[in-house]
Design a protein around this nucleic acid. Sequence first.
DNA 1: CCTCATATACTCAGAATGAGTATATGATAC
DNA 2: GTATCATATACTCATTCTGAGTATATGAGG
Lengths: 348, 348
Amino acid sequence: MNSPTELRRSAVSADRIVALTPRSELASVEIGLNAAIVAVANNEPVALIIRGEPDVAGATDGLPFGPFSPREHRTFEIGLRDWVHAQTGVELGYAEQLYTFGDRGRSTDSGDVGPRVVSIGYLALTEAKSSLELARGSWNSWYYYFPWEDWRQGRPAILETVIEPRLRDWASRPATPVSSTQPVSRQERVRICFGFDGASWDEEKVLERFELLYEAGLVDEAARDGRDSAKTWQERPRLGTPMRFDHRRILATAIGRVRAKIKYRPVIFELMPGEFTLYELQRTVEAILGPHLHKQNFRRLVEGAGLVEPTGEVRMRTGGRPAKLFRFRREVLLERPAPGVRVKPGKS
Amino acid sequence: MNSPTELRRSAVSADRIVALTPRSELASVEIGLNAAIVAVANNEPVALIIRGEPDVAGATDGLPFGPFSPREHRTFEIGLRDWVHAQTGVELGYAEQLYTFGDRGRSTDSGDVGPRVVSIGYLALTEAKSSLELARGSWNSWYYYFPWEDWRQGRPAILETVIEPRLRDWASRPATPVSSTQPVSRQERVRICFGFDGASWDEEKVLERFELLYEAGLVDEAARDGRDSAKTWQERPRLGTPMRFDHRRILATAIGRVRAKIKYRPVIFELMPGEFTLYELQRTVEAILGPHLHKQNFRRLVEGAGLVEPTGEVRMRTGGRPAKLFRFRREVLLERPAPGVRVKPGKS
DNA sequence: CCTCATATACTCAGAATGAGTATATGATAC
DNA sequence: GTATCATATACTCATTCTGAGTATATGAGG
């Protein structure tokens, strides 16, 4: 409470604090840049995954990442593009900052000793390149890490068979003192996040769901980080494939962001080749969002919003009538609402 | 190019890079937490401002900020709440991370020497407390720093009289090599950001506009950071009041985020007292967004979305018929779309 | 040339939206 | 006390948007 630092804080003006705070307290932070590089290949949403040494829980998969070198790079993004290219051979196109993670004990660092590692997560969208062109890493489906997010064939069975009973069990147990100060009960949080008891499924709540599974000790990362220490990670069913450090958390953030963003910004076209049919576009959106869309209304929306223009060419051998080819109308980036593909799921 | 670090990167697996990179390259980063604490007082949107020593350009105003102490705080947010309370006496309610700023030479640090300072910006929303209750700092209107964002009395005059001619002049000059690689011309960027030539005004593009003014050398911070060195900052008209470090940039990010977020999440109620009339709610929204709203439709939307419930009480002495008092329906946080106050400006 | 599968075009009812007019009611002035 | 004012609240209506369907076009393959 009344540590020397605390006293100093209230006594001096804010701009002196950095100077007065002991250097040892400030300097022990390292910054890691992490990239969730997303593409869609064959109607499968994929992320660029690097395989590394197994961690204590046996996780080998991780996102491309590297240190931020203040001396070398003027901005985070320059640094990111630089070493992503060096590491994987991929030249990033669209990239945006996601979130900065710095919780102690979430495998952003080596625990309570050594320098604290702060992870800045980035989302990058790219057209899928074949694995042969990758210097390192591979494109893995993101549903491999988050099977409960895959609604393309309807509600995934894992929700009923594994997640729901285990979460209900967790929710029925008394919350720890920390959680008891929260305004919403465990039951409510579970219901809202996973759409139990008639609540609807919100495909954007990817991170909230992962965090809840983590808190409930149902993903391997939780046991590795020392949560729910009563059982070892070997005993529990693995929900999805774990990742090293807190990379699955970053990937969850990325998936949620993409799912939200394609609805209000035309970022979907970062994932498309230069020319495409409207159905290919729809399949790409469905790969990301999950549910099937109403085909006729999807076309009406996309064309009506002026997002695309016909190239004049058609694609033959579609299995039926030839499909017109379209390209992205780059001008919409300069127009006001710059709408994404607003979509509601169809019935089938 | 072929620095030793570069070679190492492509040769080893990613997880070894942190360990192999020289400690000296990584450790020289300090993390500052910055809080844009926003409230609405008397229909004026305000931010909590701390006055400090004048910087080289004479700026004295800044956001509350402090160092992140890895040893002391488990998470950024805990650290933020901790020293915001110690510095200003304010107990933060709603808070969310905005962005992490780390550009060299943007007054996040002392230049090219010394440790690099990385700023993590946070947005906090709170009910306006009177200045008397503040230990330090004062509530200043955010339009004091961004006069061109204040559309409550219609299009602000400063756009016509100062900003438009100067930006057109800047846009007509040849872009530097750096800018020439950009796909959109200066003219286009100016048009879109500021709504010239019939383009519409997007109230969410607060950061884009500030960045453009910075790039054009029209805000004091630009001259201070060494941009447009031909003229000194004293010679130019000051557009808004400058802030220390890159705090105006962080505040711009905060304003843009709030303006966007109240449209799809019910965060507006973080700024309201427990009970309020619908017109008070509308005035608060207008203070943030700028334009006047259609009163009848606003009520229909807010009530129709189930965002509020009547308390049963009325407020007398409104100057006319007494107004029913409402409170926020906290349950909507648990419902699916958790809509914000979707609004379109009215005509008057 | 018939069938199939897919692409594309058109229709229609109901909901949401933008923009009004009409009415209710306490405060205030005379 | 009552006429007037100012604001709150209720209702209306035309237009657009949305969800969901049916109808038609056209190359591929037997």
